[in-house]
Design a protein around this nucleic acid. Sequence first.
DNA 1: AGTGAAATTTATCTAAC
DNA 2: GTTAGATAAATTTCACT
Lengths: 155, 155
Amino acid sequence: MTSLDSLDRRLLAAVQQDNRLTTAELGQQVGLSATACQRRLKRLRDEGVIEADIAVVSPKAVGRPVSMLVLVTLERERADIVDRFKASIRATKEVMIGLYVTGDADFVLYVTASDMEDYERFTRRFFYENPDIKGFKTMVVMDRVKAGFALPIEP
Amino acid sequence: MTSLDSLDRRLLAAVQQDNRLTTAELGQQVGLSATACQRRLKRLRDEGVIEADIAVVSPKAVGRPVSMLVLVTLERERADIVDRFKASIRATKEVMIGLYVTGDADFVLYVTASDMEDYERFTRRFFYENPDIKGFKTMVVMDRVKAGFALPIEP
DNA sequence: AGTGAAATTTATCTAAC
DNA sequence: GTTAGATAAATTTCACT
């Protein structure tokens, strides 16, 4: 595992808010030359500390204004069944986030849809046709109070 | 609301996977000149279709390898109590995602921590000291099957 | 309207130290 | 780590459909 110094962490804290800052701007923020920033960022990307660089798209703007959290329980928590369900999560674009969890449910999914009817069609296709699924509970997201992706990074 | 044509949607689909592609590369993908891509992207950013451009940081690499989903129930779902809790979500950096939902719980939080002890300290500070909270249920994330942020965007 | 080509500005990358 | 010069990209200008 790679070790991060204070400057690395400050760079990460900055670019996870905005990765379109120029290396010169970043340099000012952290007290480093543009070149040094650039080299560090390259290293962080190469080593996988920065996993991706992405644009965050407005769900509303692309016609998916409603989102749901779904707690899924499988018939039996057997390895092959779990793996099969993981694969179906990966293959399903409507599922933005899919987590395998302990506790009340086996999986939690974050699903977007254009409206409730669209979501209902999704559940039919995704859940009712799947014999491995014992049940699921839908929680409709009323407000995305915080939908950021920023980790707390101490300088 | 802004309307998106097929080229816009293809650009969005591309940059939500990787926003460091050059406009020339994007142009090749969608069949447009670099200049046209760049102008469209600028428009999409100005109009808020692209909400942000960020680096996705590895939680493990910054020392927060464990994450939890927490279902939170408030004592009473009264507007001022809900608003107060929303504010505390926004103010708490350990909470990466905070959703106000219908159904079994009032809020669902995605929380990262360095280990279970760290999480336990967090719960003490965040939950036990808050009189508005009736209870909470923790689900430990065993596998982030899909942790992407990509919306399904049809060309 | 929106597009594309060339010129300009700006940023990134490579090489030194 | 820095500074300086080469390369490449983003941005502006302008002519075109």
